[in-house]
């Protein structure tokens, strides 16, 4: 049986800076990394592999250079990877993305039963947290988001018990397999690839599925299959380095000024 981890290669947004003069995004030199949430999805799938003998499969939709990221997954211990890459997949919103990923999982499940699909809670570039639910809904899998602990997987009974982390509470949930789980960053600590595994991954073959192979209706994928359109992108206003008042002599006043700023910028609510 398979555990499928869905991962995405993203620009390292923490390295993206706004040019203070022009207000434009400085992207030069920003590397692509494996989405920091997806690393934990990958790790969790590997733990399930170790614990329950599931075959860890990693899939990713993206440009051809996503291969680099998939090799990192192999170095950490994934059994197989599939790269979903086609220019027809480009420009996809979450609806069109979940279409491709769900179709790929369906394809995988034709060859071998899928027990679990694991996704990161969200990506750092899009921050939507919508692709996981999209895949679950399309496949009719049980949907378990924000999971911070998989308590057990009962393969013979086709059941999984997880703990979801919500604001102010935890929910303990039992669900049937196959299920889709999105994981928080706290769910596990990451393993580090050993050198023999890295060397193996550098040589390993990466399976590529393009749309010729997938055969999806072009109206449902990529830019055409997207229900949302980006109208405009602009830089947010950001306050930088503003010293408020004379805190040394008038602490009360400085505190008041700060409070005013925080309320004005919609950061605090009273």
């Amino acid at each position: 049986m398979l555990v499928v981890a869905c991962i995405k290669q993203v620009p390292d947004t923490t390295q993206v800076k706004i040019d203070p003069d022009t207000g434009t995004l400085i992207r030069e030199g920003v590397p692509f990394i494996l989405n920091p949430f997806d690393v934990h999805a990958l790790e969790e799938s590997l733990r399930l592999k170790d614990k329950y003998g599931l075959r860890a499969t990693v899939i990713s939709m993206g440009p051809p250079n996503t291969e680099v990221t998939l090799r990192k997954a192999l170095a950490r211990g994934a059994d197989q990877t599939v790269l979903l890459s086609d220019r027809a997949f480009g420009g996809a919103d979450t609806l069109a993305t979940s279409m491709v990923l769900a179709s790929a999982i369906r394809r995988l499940s034709q060859a071998e039963e899928v027990a679990l699909v694991i996704c990161g809670q969200q990506t750092i570039d899009g921050d939507t947290a919508q692709v996981g639910p999209g895949i679950a809904t399309r496949l009719g899998y049980a949907q378990l988001t924000l999971v911070d602990c998989i308590e057990y997987v009962d393969l013979p009974a086709r059941k999984v018990k997880v703990r979801r982390k919500l604001r102010g509470r935890h929910e303990v949930i039992e669900a049937p397999l196959p299920a889709l789980i999105t994981v928080t960053r706290e769910i596990n600590r990451l393993r580090y690839p050993t050198v023999p595994m890295r060397l193996m991954a550098e040589e390993a073959a990466i399976t590529l599925w393009d749309n010729q192979k997938m055969g999806l209706d072009e109206a449902t994928i990529g830019l055409k299959g997207s229900a949302t359109q980006v109208r405009r992108i602009f830089s947010p206003e950001r306050a930088r380095g503003e010293i408020l008042g004379d805190g040394a002599n008038e602490p009360e006043k400085a505190a008041q000024l700060l409070l005013g700023k925080l309320i004005e910028k919609d950061l605090l609510y009273l």
């Binding site: 947004t13 800076k17 899009g126 359109q229 109208r231 992108i233 602009f234």
Partner: peptide, 11 residues
């Protein structure tokens, strides 16, 4: 989006 570095208007 982009870790808060940009704002996007979407429809």
């Amino acid at each position: 989006a982009f870790g808060g570095n940009i704002m996007a208007t979407i429809l």
